[in-house]
Simulated assay, not measured.
Amino acid sequence: MALSRSFFHTASFAVLMAASTLGAGSAAHADDKITIMVGGYEKHIYLPAKLAEALGYFKDEGLDVELLNEPAGVDAENQLLAGAVQGVVGFYDHCIDLQAKGKLVESIVQFSQAPGEVELVSTKHPEIKSAADFKGMSLGVTGLGSSTNFLTQYLAFKSGLQPGEFTSVPVGAGATFIAAMQQDKIQAGMTTEPTISRMLKTKEASVLIDMRSVESTRAALGGTYPAASLYMETSWVDAHKETTQKLANAFVKTLKYINTHSADDIADKMPKDFYVGDKEGYVKALADGKAMFTADGIMPADGPQTVLNVLSSFSKNVKGKQIDLSKTFTSEFVKAAK
């Protein structure tokens, strides 16, 4: 009986240990299931999200990442704050705007050092020759409270216009943006590639203000303007450092791929519907704009202050607020990336 009792005790202990190990494995798996909302993953500016997925870099890190598409960054931000997603691929400026509202959100990996945006003007309105001519106009943005709206308001303010002298119209990007301009619902608008190239090719629009390169962005905004990033709530990052590090590993590897491969190589990894029937145009635009991406995911040293200066100039939410820029981004994870 003693032997029998010993056997059952040993067997029971083994079962408990197995269950404990299985539970720990399940918890780790659950922790590594990440949902990221992308503010329009077909846009060139947010290309690292789909590219990381296509290259298998998330899986290489043992992550199960689901990418959700949301055309307007402000809606992605709302999903993050509601706890529906763990991360957002969107503009860094939301991290500053949210801190002004009492929410701590930080850029974990900085994808770009320029917005990659352009203010397009309908060729039906040749009278618009500068942002000062926005007075009385309807201007297209992806969404109210979006980064395109922030930039539009700044450009208007910089040209001497007051709030109410122009109208921001949420029209999204791609086909909806194009239709709005064709129907004269907007006379100008802020958008990104591949929408820019599509409208230039049909000669339905021309470029008024170009922020696709670091140099042209400095001319328009007064400094380096870090834009596309992976941002997350600070409290979530602090509680999930291992998972955050794995995400940083995957994205830094992706940025290095962009930096060391041709636009053709990169385009071949993208879903074919992203080309919108014009792969040649897609590749050319990507080749022309590839330099906006950082090579290592590190925040440009002068970038946060430029973004704060821009937002503080027109935003009632940010103006006069004490913003701790050191809490709006971290380089901890990208510096430790494999």
Rank of each mutant, 00 (worst) to 15 (best):
Y41N: 14
T244R: 00
V214R: 06
K59T: 15
L144F: 05
T191P: 04
L311R: 01
I178M: 14
S197K: 10
S147R: 03
K241E: 12
A239G: 05
L67M: 13
F91I: 11
V283M: 02
C95Y: 00
Q183T: 15
V310C: 05
S197G: 13
A337G: 00
L221K: 01
P170K: 13
S312G: 09
M181P: 10
L155M: 11
V74R: 00
S146I: 09
S206Y: 13
L286H: 09
D278P: 05
A173G: 07
D133C: 01
I186C: 05
G281F: 05
E61V: 02
D93Q: 13
A156C: 10
F58P: 03
A239W: 06
L120I: 07
L151S: 03
I36C: 05
A132S: 09
P48A: 07
A11T: 12
A2P: 04
F58L: 01
E332Y: 00
A295P: 01
Y275L: 13
S326H: 10
A336G: 01
A54F: 07
D265W: 12
A179Y: 02
F13T: 07
L63H: 02
T195E: 15
E42R: 10
L55S: 03
D264G: 08
T191Y: 08
G320L: 11
I36S: 08
G62T: 07
K135W: 01
A227F: 12
G116A: 03
S112Y: 05
A30F: 02
G56M: 08
L16R: 01
N259D: 14
I186D: 04
Y257E: 00
L308W: 01
Q245V: 03
P194N: 14
V334F: 01
T224R: 02
A54D: 02
L221S: 08
Q162K: 14
K43A: 13
T21D: 10
E242C: 06
A49C: 09
M17F: 10
K269Q: 15
P304N: 05
I108H: 00
A28I: 14
V276K: 08
S312Q: 08
A72W: 00
K201L: 13
L247S: 03
I196L: 13
A175Q: 15
E193W: 07
N149T: 10
N259G: 04
T330F: 05
S6Q: 14
L286D: 12
G174N: 09
L104E: 14
S20M: 06
T224Q: 03
R218T: 09
D302S: 07
